[in-house]
């Protein structure tokens, strides 16, 4: 899509994404890490060629219950990695541990080689990590463009004393506004810039949340169920946006229930069950993994799990069974 997106050394700059791209879905996205996983074994805890994030012996206990117990995980830089698993597998808890929203009972997490599990969550944004939430956190009483501007870094006006004197922050504010409008344009949301975020539909809020995350110019984007409750039309453009993030050289980790989505966009899939990672591999490897099949069947006795000839799970509706339960507890958009 753009020249510097091909660059292996990621150059920060949202504008690189380009305004006026129109519907993101129409674009074939270049995959800068094509082939990187070719030599990586399909086994749990395997080393990646260039890991951005590492989790070592991370566990989290609530009283007597062990919610997460991950021995070792590496995430490849520049890849789209999916984190899947049945309900209650500890995906979101693990996500919270990785993003500093919860502190592991044992173990450590490192980002670009720097230990981050004791770093408060708000400092991670400046280290290049940003996340979204399963229950969308659009800031309802702020307009969409205000939501965007919140993501911007280096705004001197966010200091209480400098805020008192407009000239100290007006310049940066204008630049941020400009940047926000460009991102909105890329997300096809320019027309709703002045609306209160609370008035948007569930899917649109997801978009706002993701766009806001992009405003922090992240190296690593962590999306917690980005497609939950989003209508099919919007799903396509969201998928396009995620791929676009990859083509800009950013790393994406996302939690997802929908196998179609996982198959469509992920380079690597990590499967969790009962707090542990039970399988890793490219999407096509997951369906044939006995541990994964057992984990899903184990938690959904009453549902069928079928595989087509590619080894992908299917049902009559063409959607993986394990997405069924997940959808009921997240908000549903129009």
């Amino acid at each position: 899509m753009t020249d510097n997106s091909n660059d292996a050394d990621f150059v920060p700059g949202i504008t690189a994404g380009g305004g006026g791209a129109g519907a993101a879905t129409d674009i074939e996205h270049h995959n800068p890490i094509e082939g990187v996983f070719d030599d990586v074994a399909w086994e749990v805890g395997v080393a990646k060629p260039d890991p951005i994030l590492k989790a070592t012996k991370v566990s989290r206990k609530f009283g007597g219950l062990t919610a997460v117990d991950v021995d070792y995980l590496e995430v490849q830089r520049g890849s789209i990695t999916a984190l899947i698993g049945p309900n209650g597998a500890g995906k979101t808890t693990f996500f919270n541990l990785l993003t500093g929203f919860d502190e592991p009972t044992t173990g450590s997490v490192s980002l670009n080689g720097e230990t981050i599990d004791k770093v408060p969550s708000h400092k991670l944004a400046s280290k290049g990590m940003v996340r979204t939430f399963q229950l969308t956190k659009a800031l309802s009483k702020l307009t969409v463009v205000e939501n965007m501007k919140l993501g911007a870094k280096d705004q001197p006006g966010e200091s209480m004393f400098k805020a008192l004197f407009s000239p100290l922050w007006k310049g940066r504010e204008d630049a941020v506004e400009q940047q926000a409008r460009e991102v909105l344009d890329r997300f096809n949301m320019t027309h709703m810039a002045e609306e209160f975020a609370g008035t948007l539909s569930g899917g649109q809020r997801k978009l706002v949340e993701m766009a806001r995350a992009i405003m922090t110019d992240p190296e690593l984007v962590m999306l917690d169920e980005p497609m939950a409750g989003v209508n099919p039309a919007l799903t396509q453009s969201l998928l396009g946006l995620v791929k676009q993030l990859r083509s800009e050289g950013r790393t994406v980790i996302f939690v997802e229930h929908d196998m179609d989505v996982v198959r469509d966009i992920s380079d690597w899939v990590v499967v969790m069950a009962e707090g542990k990672i039970i399988a890793e591999g490219p999407p096509e490897s997951i369906g044939e993994n006995q541990a994964v099949v057992d984990a899903y069947l184990g938690s959904h006795h009453d549902e069928d799990l079928e595989f087509d000839e590619d080894g992908n799970t299917t049902t009559e509706t063409g959607e993986a069974t394990f997405s069924v339960n997940a959808k009921t507890d997240s908000e549903v958009s129009e």
């Binding site: 993003t99 929203f101 408060p120 969550s121 708000h122 400092k123 991670l124 944004a125 400046s126 940003v130 996340r131 979204t132 939430f133 956190k137 659009a138 800031l139 309802s140 009483k141 702020l142 205000e146 919140l150 993501g151 870094k153 949340e209 806001r212 995350a213 405003m215 922090t216």
Partner: peptide
């Protein structure tokens, strides 16, 4: 105002 609306979201944005 962002903190008022959702503290976690504000923290996630740094």
């Amino acid at each position: 105002k962002a903190i008022r609306e959702d503290e976690d979201a504000a923290r996630a944005l740094g």
